[in-house]
């Protein structure tokens, strides 16, 4: 792993990738990628467009084809597992693109978040809990998701991913396309969730913002990990700053 050995590495990771080569069909996007995230921390993945950040998350979640290497969750090999299994194991994922069901109401969207429970009552109970945490969503729960504003939709996507009460959450560019006031709101939510014990792995286009909330950071470029360290270490790194933070 092309990393920065003097910086801090995770010692007892809850989630890790070891020498993963992955992509889609015949196309390889990630070349020998290794990362490790410790329980209870916020980890942030930064890097230029097209460097493979989304593919990294998709490789963990079961949306990409892993050609070699392993993905480990809580000591268990989860390489190539389906999203259904990952959700049941307490991992959820928020996609970068709009991923609501536009002709379903907010409430129906929330229930779909609990689809893997196979238990409608349990899903309804969990949704009710989440409306307490996100009163804005409770107010609009009968509205069709297709009519929501960008900020409301992102909140719905976040809350829907919480339906499985995840131990670990992956968020792909949670701030993309949002007005500045909503961006702070989203990061505030991420911090709150993390305080409650949810481990977070996020991809962030706004590298400085991402690293400033992160306990740990990874810099990905051309499908390879170039730097690994704590958020602060990477923020203060001269090379990272010059190459990836535009400083």
């Amino acid at each position: 792993m092309a990393t920065t050995p003097e910086y801090t590495a995770a010692e007892d990771p809850i989630l890790s990738m070891d020498s993963v080569v992955s992509g889609y069909g015949n196309t390889t996007v990630l070349h020998d990628v290794s990362i490790a995230v410790e329980e209870g921390e916020i980890a942030c993945l930064i890097g230029p467009n097209g460097s493979g950040k989304s593919t990294l998350m998709k490789s963990i979640y079961g949306f990409a084809d892993i050609k070699s290497g392993t993905v480990t969750l809580d000591g268990e090999d989860i390489t190539g597992r389906s999203p259904q299994e990952n959700l049941k194991n307490g991992m959820s994922y928020v996609l970068q693109d709009a991923s609501v069901f536009p002709n379903m109401t907010v409430h129906e969207n929330m229930l779909m978040g609990g689809y893997v429970f196979k238990d409608d009552d349990r899903a309804a109970d969990r949704a009710a809990q989440l409306y307490d945490e996100f009163p804005v969503l409770g107010d609009i729960k009968e509205q069709k998701a297709g009519t929501l504003s960008g900020g409301q939709r992102r909140l719905l996507e976040l809350a829907r991913a919480l339906m499985v009460d995840p131990d670990i959450m992956m968020l792909d560019e949670p701030s993309i396309g949002l007005e500045p006031k909503f961006i702070d709101d989203v990061f505030e939510r991420i911090r709150q969730l993390n305080d409650l014990g949810t481990t977070m792995l996020l991809v962030e286009q706004n590298a400085e913002k991402g690293l400033s909330v992160a306990d740990r950071g990874f810099v990905l470029a051309s499908g390879e990990i170039k730097f690994t360290g704590t958020g602060t270490e990477l923020l203060n790194d001269e090379a990272v700053g010059r190459l990836y933070l535009g400083g």
Partner: peptide
């Protein structure tokens, strides 16, 4: 519900475990 979800957004359907 899974059928309606797939019709409205197949990627999101896969995301929630369908």
């Amino acid at each position: 519900r899974a059928i309606r979800a797939v019709s409205q957004n197949p990627e999101a359907a896969a995301l929630v475990g369908i």
